[in-house]
Design a protein around this nucleic acid. Structure first.
Lengths: 261, 261
DNA sequence: CAATATTATGCAAATATTTGCAAACAAACA
DNA sequence: TGTTTGTTTGCAAATATTTGCATAATATTG
């Protein structure tokens, strides 16, 4: 402890280093105290508070008055929401929210964009969410009015989701109002395609069992294509990107009967 | 207890921590006494009273005159349970390991004891694990040679697992070599019983579809009983506790044909 | 019913958090 | 090099929460 103190006192410390030390401390003691950290890391309590807020947003700990305590017993890896805070995804998430109404049944596939949407849902909203994504279920743990059905199957250690025969069979037992579909690529002619065969099959099953499909894609993925076919472009009802829907590039999708947001 | 006292007396304590300790105590003793807590946690009785009211509002306990008792037959939150009895759970985990051989198919239910076992598995072991526990699947993410099937169903926000019709149906599609069953209570006459109805049903389904059943229980749960029946005591093959298997109290189980470890 | 113990409420002091702001600093670019 | 842009950090005022105490209300017991 003294070593840590000396080290921190003498040498300059990167912000990332500080965050790491906070996470380490939480892992060790199950808690951190704001003032202690402030002294230990030689920064103001304001900074520590902001750090804790940041880590809390990522789901790595739980901010409480005066410090922070350990979050859920779910592995941090499942909760890492590092890549979802990008500006683009926030914009898409905001746009998607207006389609989601209390009481609906949502089917949500695994991906950083859909995870971003889920993490921006209002805390008290009442919904039924069906998903095969572990990060999404870890977020929804804290939503008291959301009933969550998790779709079982074989764990896919790369996408943090389940895939395979059991997953697809399980999906077919549901019927959702809206499918929120984070997609790899979409092209008017080729349709929606994906990078992972198993996930493509899951996406297809989700589409088939949902009344309305809302596809989520960053602008750069438009017109691209990947190895595995999911569905035709006009199988979707709404396409949300981070750009202005009146952009010329998007006209083709509109003509195909897809609502652009 | 003395340690707790000293700790609390010396070091500053977050409010959130205090609330956790109250819930832990409830989980352990089924009750808390207001004045005791006040002394133990070094705050006024008013504060404890407000704490109890807060927890009672959340449904984690039931406020009664002079303290609080265990609330509904809902388990305290997993988070608050995970630190209880850790030493015992480590011992049980070590004993359980000798039954697990490479190549086996394991069916594992949700609970802190089974989670402890999984986290002590050797990193390179090759297994197939079927589970409905989110903490367990999050641990197994890092095991390259373990194939994981996750059993879907409705998310149970208290136990971090899935339960319900879909879960039970999905379990019936598997056939496991070994079922690792963390249990609430076991009594020779009454059998194995549980606190949560849904989880009891899941446990039963797991038992029915496994060749060998290894039940895991801390010693204090022996001879106890809970509201929901799971199975007869002799339905299990092995019972592991943290105590020496030659203890007199355990003789009855041996006579019933259960191997004690 | 009276005596006693327990709980609820209002209040004020201490403490923590939020918010806006400005200085310091770093990265990108002409 | 200088300028711009964005991030990080500390400060301070406004706000909110927590806590213990005093007091009133309520429940328990004989």
């Amino acid at each position: 402890m003294l070593q840590l103190l000396i080290c921190c006192y003498i040498c300059f410390m990167l912000k990332a280093e500080r965050l790491q030390k906070i996470v380490e401390q939480i892992a060790k003691d199950n808690k951190v105290i704001l003032d202690d950290l402030s002294q230990l890391l030689n920064v103001s309590t304001d900074t520590i508070r902001r750090d804790i807020k940041e880590l809390s947003d990522k789901g790595l700990l739980k901010a409480v008055r005066g410090g922070a305590i350990i979050g859920s017993p779910v592995h941090p890896h499942f909760k890492e929401r590092q890549n979802i805070d990008t500006q683009h995804k926030k914009v898409i998430a905001q746009k998607a929210l207006e389609f989601i109404k209390p009481g609906q049944v949502l089917l949500i596939n695994a991906g950083t964009t859909t995870t971003a949407i889920v993490s921006t849902l209002p805390k008290e909203i009442a919904l039924t969410v069906i998903t095969n994504s572990f990060p999404i279920v870890s977020i929804l743990e804290d939503y008291p009015n959301i009933t969550v059905f998790f779709i079982g199957g074989q764990l896919n250690k790369h996408s943090f989701s389940t895939t395979g025969y059991e997953t697809i069979e399980a999906i077919r037992n549901f019927r959702a109002d809206i499918c929120l579909l984070g997609i790899c690529s979409i092209d008017l002619k080729v349709g929606i395609t994906g990078f992972d065969h198993q996930e493509s099959l899951v996406d297809r099953a989700m589409i088939e069992t949902s009344k309305h499909i809302i596809a989520l894609s960053t602008y750069e993925k438009l017109g691209a294509s990947d190895p595995y076919y999911v569905c035709a472009a006009n199988a979707i009802d709404v396409l949300i990107t981070e750009k202005d829907p009146s952009l010329a590039d998007l006209a083709g999708f509109k003509d195909a009967g897809i609502m652009i947001k």
